[in-house]
């Protein structure tokens, strides 16, 4: 069992926005999480990664036998957890390659500057990230570009469990296909947060959860996702 979340409650800004959520993601499972805007999906994701504003009030999250609720985001990353952000953050002036190299070195162990450069170039081309992006600052990327950059980071850090918060939003249809096929290649357990069926058609989730007002109201297989897509969350 790679990630086991038990009765998790998350508070942000004085409000409980995740009200006791439980699920598991097995080693190479694809788990989809759907639900209306504001239902608490991102809050759950951020709390799992350790954002200081999204406080875990109770419950546990166990990654390969280790309860991660009390440890720093840095340590969670090193244990193999990854979050692809719904809204990736700009860090003006920070060179993309410098950032990625440091992240890689922290999570995967030291690699020489030149070797890393070659690895990066290789991953960029397979994910379809334009070559010049690595010499840019971490700012000003378009919505779709940001999502590809998130995927690039995931591919470099090679996590055990990846939470992908709307990685499909903002992607054009070609990009969506690229991203999906790249995700298939990576051997991580996935929590796919999405509003759209397209990505799920490519990735065929084993389990689908539907969250509403901070709780998982329903769970099922891919057919549940199809129904939600057709009928809405009701």
């Amino acid at each position: 069992m790679a990630l086991e979340v038990n009765n998790l409650k998350v508070e942000v800004d004085g409000n409980i926005v995740v009200k006791g959520v439980s699920f598991v993601i097995g080693d190479k499972d694809v788990v989809a999480l759907m639900g209306p805007n504001g239902s608490g999906k991102s809050s759950l994701a951020l709390a799992l990664m350790g954002h200081p504003r999204y406080k875990i009030k109770s419950g546990s999250a166990v990654l390969d036998g280790v309860d991660i609720t009390g440890i720093s985001p840095e340590q969670r990353a090193k244990l193999g957890l990854f979050l692809s952000f719904q809204n990736p953050v700009d860090v003006p002036g920070l060179g993309v390659e410098t950032f990625l190299r440091q992240a890689y070195n922290s999570v995967r162990g030291r690699m020489g500057v030149m070797d890393f450069h070659l690895l990066l170039k290789d991953r960029m081309s397979s994910i379809g990230v334009p070559g010049q992006f690595s010499s840019r600052d971490l700012r000003g990327f378009s919505g779709g570009e940001r999502k590809r950059m998130e995927l690039l980071q995931m591919s470099l850090l090679n996590p055990k469990i990846a939470i992908l918060d709307e990685i499909d939003s903002g992607l054009d249809s070609g990009a969506l296909k690229d991203v999906a096929s790249e995700l298939k290649k990576l051997s991580a357990g996935l929590l796919l947060i999405t509003h759209y069926i397209r990505m799920l058609e490519f990735l065929r989730p084993d389990v689908v959860h539907v969250m509403k007002a901070g709780q998982i109201m329903r769970s099922g297989d891919f057919r549940l996702a199809l129904r939600m897509d057709r009928e809405g969350f009701g």
Partner: peptide, 15 residues
């Protein structure tokens, strides 16, 4: 920004 720090830390960097 707290968000920038968190973003970087989520990639394995220390505070």
């Amino acid at each position: 920004s707290e968000d920038a720090l968190f973003y970087l830390m989520s990639r394995g960097l220390s505070q």
